[in-house]
Amino acid sequence: MVDFRIDRRSGVATYLQIVQQTKQALRLGLLVPGDRLPTAKQVVEATAINPNTVLKAYRELEREGLVAPRPGLGTFVLRTLAHEEAAPDSPLRAELAAWAARARQAGLDRDDVTALVAAVVDEEFTAGPGDAAGKDKGNL
C-alpha cells in the first residue's frame, strides 16, 4: 500500500499530489495490478485532508485508466507504469544510487541534487530524436 505525503507548501493541488504519488508508485513497481489503494477514510486519517479531495484524485486516476473502483471493496490498480529498467534491482537504478551517493559525499544536499537532476532531465528530454543532449545544437 502507498502512504501519501501532502506538502501544503508545495503550491501543487492536494489531489494532484495524490495522483502524482500514485503514478510514481506505479512507475517504481510499488503498486501493481490488483493492489488496493488506501480508502478515502484511511487517507483522510493519515493526512487530514477532505475526503472529496481523495475521491477527486481517485477519479482522475480512474479517468486515466490506471485504477477502477469496486463498490464495497475499494479502488484497485488496473495497470502498471513500471519499466524493467527502473526496478529496484536494475543496473540503471544501481548506477543512479551510486551517483547520488557521490553527490552527497561531494557536499550536495537534497535540493542541490534535485535541481541538478531536473536540469539534466530537461536537457536530455528537450533534445530532439537523434540530437546529442547537452551538446551545442548551434554547431550541428
Rank of each mutant, 00 (worst) to 15 (best):
E45A: 13
R9G: 14
V2N: 08
E60Y: 08
D112V: 06
V32H: 12
A101E: 02
A115D: 14
D136R: 01
A133E: 02
E85S: 12
G107L: 04
G128W: 06
W99S: 03
F125L: 15
G134N: 08
L116V: 12
W99H: 03
A94D: 08
F76A: 01
A97T: 10
Q105L: 06
L81G: 05
F125P: 04
R70G: 02
W99K: 05
P69R: 12
A57R: 04
A40R: 00
V43R: 03
T39L: 01
T80A: 11
R104I: 02
L61R: 04
L81R: 11
T22L: 07
F4I: 09
V12C: 04
R104T: 00
R36G: 07
T80V: 11
K56L: 15
N52W: 11
Y15R: 12
P91S: 15
Q24L: 13
D131Q: 14
S90Q: 08
K56M: 07
V32C: 15
L81H: 06
E84Y: 08
A127Q: 08
D7W: 06
E85A: 13
I18V: 13
L30I: 06
G34I: 09
A87S: 15
N50T: 15
Q42D: 04
N52D: 12
D122I: 07
Q17L: 00
L116I: 12
G134M: 10
F4K: 01
A103V: 00
L92S: 11
P38N: 10
T75N: 03
A94N: 08
G134E: 08
D136A: 05
A46D: 02
A115L: 15
A94W: 04
V121I: 14
A46M: 00
D35L: 02
G138Y: 07
T126F: 01
K135G: 01
G134K: 08
L31E: 06
A119S: 10
V120W: 07
T22I: 06
D136G: 02
L96R: 14
V121F: 12
A118M: 10
G74I: 02
A86H: 10
A101V: 05
V113W: 00
L116F: 11
K41M: 05
E60P: 00
E64T: 02
G130N: 11
L73Q: 13
L16G: 08
E124R: 12
G11N: 11
D122K: 15
Q42A: 05
L78C: 08
L16I: 10
L28K: 14
T39Q: 07
G29F: 01
G128F: 07
E95M: 15
A115H: 09
